[in-house]
C-alpha cells in the first residue's frame, strides 16, 4: 500500500512540475502587466531544443540550459512585437504559439525515434531512507528541487524585495512608474524573457525527465493549462504550485482509474485535465471581485512611453 501511495505522489509531482515552471514564469510576466499567451509554443520549442542538444551532446544539463535559452528567445520575439512594435498581446501570443508548434515539429523531425536516459533522482543520504517522506521528498530529481527553490526565490522577490515591488507597480500602473523615471519597457522585457526561460524549462522537464523523449505536440495543452493556473492561483506563487500538483493529480488519476478496472473510454479519461481546468476557472472567476482585486491592473494593455 505504501509503495502505491509513494508511486502516486511521485507521479503527481512529476506531472505537476512542468506546470510549476511554466506557470511561475507566466506569473512574473503577467505581474509586469504583459499577457503572453504563447506559453504552449515556448514550452514546445524549449522541449525540442533541449532534447535535441541533450541527444546530440549527451549532456542533459546542456539540454536544460538550451531549453531555457530557446524559451527566452521565443519570448524575445513576443517582446519585440508587443513592447517595441506595440502589437496586440492576445494576437501576438497566439502567433507565438502557432509559430512554436510549427517550429518545434520542424526541428524535432530527426529526433522522434531517439531515446534518452532522463535525469535521475538524487537520493539525499539518511533522509531519503525515512518511510513515506523519504522517497517522496528526499529522493526527487534535481529539477524538482530546483522548482522548490524557484518558488521560494520568486515569492521572496515579489513580496520582500524592492525590485519585486517595482515589477508589481509597473503591472498596476505603468504610467505612474514611467513618470517617476522607471524604464517600464526594459523591465517588461526582462519579465517577458524570464517567463520564456521558465516555459522553456517546463518544456525541458517534459522532454528530459518526465517522458523522456520528443513527440510532436507533446505538451498537449500544458502551456494553456499553465495560463489557467495563474488565474486559478489569483497571481500568487504558492497557490500556483498547489494548483499545479492538483492538475498533476488529475492527470495521474486517469491512469489509475484505468488500472483499477473501471470501464470508462480512454479518450474520456484523457479529457479530464481539460475539463478540470474549465471547472476551476469557473469557480475562481465566479466572483468578479476576486479577479479584479488580484489581477495586475494593466494586464494585456499596450504601453507607449512617448504617448
Amino acid at each position: 500500500m505504501n509503495d502505491v501511495l509513494v508511486g502516486i505522489i511521485l507521479a503527481t509531482l512529476g506531472a505537476g512540475t512542468p506546470l510549476v515552471f511554466a506557470a511561475l514564469g507566466e506569473l512574473i510576466t503577467e505581474k509586469s502587466g504583459v499577457l503572453n499567451l504563447g506559453v504552449e509554443g515556448m514550452m514546445l520549442v524549449g522541449a525540442v531544443c533541449g532534447f535535441a542538444v541533450a541527444a546530440d551532446t549527451g549532456s542533459l544539463w546542456l539540454g536544460v540550459v538550451t531549453a531555457m535559452t530557446a524559451g527566452a528567445f521565443m519570448a524575445l520575439l513576443f517582446g519585440v512585437l508587443t513592447l517595441t512594435f506595440q502589437a496586440n498581446q492576445v494576437a501576438a501570443g497566439l502567433a507565438l504559439t502557432i509559430f512554436g508548434v510549427g517550429l518545434s515539429a520542424y526541428i524535432g523531425l530527426e529526433y522522434t525515434s531517439v531515446a534518452l536516459t532522463g535525469l535521475q533522482a538524487v537520493h539525499i543520504p539518511l533522509l531519503s531512507s525515512m518511510p513515506l517522506i523519504g522517497p517522496t521528498i528526499f529522493s526527487l530529481d534535481p529539477l524538482m528541487y530546483l522548482s522548490f527553490v524557484l518558488l521560494a526565490a520568486i515569492s521572496y522577490f515579489l513580496y520582500r524585495s524592492k525590485a519585486g515591488l517595482l515589477l508589481r507597480a509597473i503591472g498596476e500602473s505603468p504610467r505612474s512608474a514611467h513618470s517617476i523615471g522607471y524604464p517600464v519597457i526594459r523591465i517588461r522585457y526582462l519579465a517577458v524573457l524570464f517567463g520564456g526561460g521558465m516555459a522553456g524549462l517546463g518544456g525541458a522537464y517534459l522532454a528530459l525527465v518526465y517522458t523522456p523523449l520528443w513527440v510532436e505536440g507533446m505538451t498537449a495543452g500544458r502551456g494553456w493549462i499553465s495560463l489557467a493556473l495563474v488565474v486559478f492561483a489569483t497571481w500568487r506563487p504558492a497557490r500556483v504550485i498547489l494548483g499545479a500538483y492538483l492538475f498533476g493529480g488529475v492527470t495521474i488519476l486517469q491512469l489509475h482509474v484505468q488500472g483499477l478496472g473501471i470501464d470508462l473510454p480512454a479518450q474520456l479519461l484523457s479529457s479530464l485535465p481539460y475539463i478540470a481546468t474549465i471547472v476551476v476557472l469557473v469557480l475562481i472567476s465566479r466572483d468578479i471581485n476576486t479577479i479584479r482585486l488580484n489581477s495586475p491592473a494593466s494586464i494585456g494593455k499596450t504601453f507607449h512611453p512617448g504617448a
Binding site: 509554443g41 502567433a95 507565438l96 502557432i98 509559430f99 512554436g100 508548434v101 510549427g102 517550429l103 515539429a105 520542424y106 523531425l109
Partner: peptide
C-alpha cells in the same frame, strides 16, 4: 511542418 512555421 514548414507550413506551420511560415503561418506563424
Amino acid at each position: 511542418a514548414v507550413t506551420g512555421v511560415f503561418q506563424g
